[in-house]
Amino acid sequence: MQYKDYYKILGVSRAASADEIKRAYRRLAHRYHPDVSKQPNAEQHFKEVGEAYEVLKDQQKRAAYDQLGTQWQAGQDFQPPPGWQSGFDFTDDSVSHTYSFDFSDFFSTLFRSGSQSTRYNDQPHSFQVQGEDQQAKMVITLEEAYHGATRSVQLQIPITHGKGMAQTKTRALNIKIPAGVIRGQKIRLAEQGLEGIGGAANGDLYLEIEFQPHQLFRAEGRDIYLTLPITPWESALGSTIAIPTLGGQVELKIPAGSQSGQQLRLKGRGLPGHPAGDQYIILQLVTPPAHSETERAFYYNMAEKFAFNPRLDLMKK
């Protein structure tokens, strides 16, 4: 009886997560599926992939398999250790019934108490493999995130056919962008991923939201940030200024004595949600240039009138 390296068959590490194992299985099952692949020994590869997945997807079977150690090489003569199965219960016959093949002697010896020649669904074209989920990024504007929108997009969807080679086809989709979507959020499109085989369901398509750079705003979660230039007199005396938000223009009161870098908050003026985000205004003091003699004289006069040194604390240290 030959030892089978199930991790090598799926092309994953021994530390692979359950999701990594599932993705590897779906990818290889599509590549070697007898209904679509013309590769030599495709059916044998498909059987090996299915058997490996049956073991590694099951927490108990995987733990038992891992106890065999790492000293074995694929194809080596193998005998289970003495007392094998004494600490495990594999009598629930949990093997999937969607496959149409015999499991290997190696599998049957380790995990099955019944006949190793048990077959599942002898129809030659009854292989079923659910389609793999697909991921893609979708770049939208902040205005679309605020108001919601419908986008017509064309996506390149991978398919496998012929000799098992991966190809792409173009699929046009109308995608509804919900108001209040944030960067990194994923929109799920059911059964728009990789096609299933043998009548199995397609995978899902997940579109991860990314924002286009904006001329005025930047987003952090649902909060929106705007840098607002103000004059020295608006800073010193206070003022009311019209400022832009994603929902339209609003009036903002600048308190007297405001400083550059200070933040003011407009509650609920960020992206919609429960609760909605806020808009933060970062004040940026802009000093007007002194080009003429009159303008320079004004600054000289200010220097004389104001006994003000912003570096006073710095000089004491």
Rank of each mutant, 00 (worst) to 15 (best):
E234M: 14
E234K: 12
S235A: 15
S235W: 04
S235T: 03
S235M: 01
S235R: 03
S235Q: 05
A236P: 01
L237H: 13
L237T: 04
L237W: 04
L237A: 12
G238L: 06
G238R: 09
G238I: 12
G238F: 03
G238K: 08
G238A: 03
S239E: 00
S239Q: 09
S239A: 14
T240Q: 14
A242F: 15
A242K: 15
I243R: 08
I243S: 08
P244W: 07
P244Y: 04
P244G: 10
P244M: 04
P244R: 02
P244N: 05
T245E: 04
T245K: 06
T245R: 01
L246F: 11
L246K: 06
G247K: 10
G247D: 09
G248W: 08
Q249S: 01
V250H: 11
V250K: 03
V250N: 00
V250D: 06
V250L: 01
V250R: 03
E251Y: 13
E251N: 14
L252H: 00
L252S: 00
L252F: 02
K253I: 12
K253T: 14
K253P: 01
K253W: 00
I254M: 10
I254S: 10
P255L: 03
P255H: 08
A256S: 12
G257S: 13
G257N: 11
S258C: 07
S258E: 11
S258Q: 05
S258K: 03
Q259G: 12
Q259P: 02
Q259K: 14
Q259L: 15
Q259M: 15
Q259C: 13
Q259N: 05
Q259R: 15
Q259A: 13
Q259I: 14
Q259T: 15
S260T: 13
S260V: 09
G261R: 10
G261L: 05
G261F: 08
Q262T: 01
Q262D: 00
L264V: 02
L264M: 01
L264C: 10
L264Q: 08
R265E: 02
R265L: 07
L266S: 08
L266T: 06
L266A: 13
L266M: 04
K267E: 15
K267G: 11
K267Y: 14
G268Y: 02
G268L: 07
G268I: 09
G268T: 05
R269C: 00
R269G: 06
R269W: 12
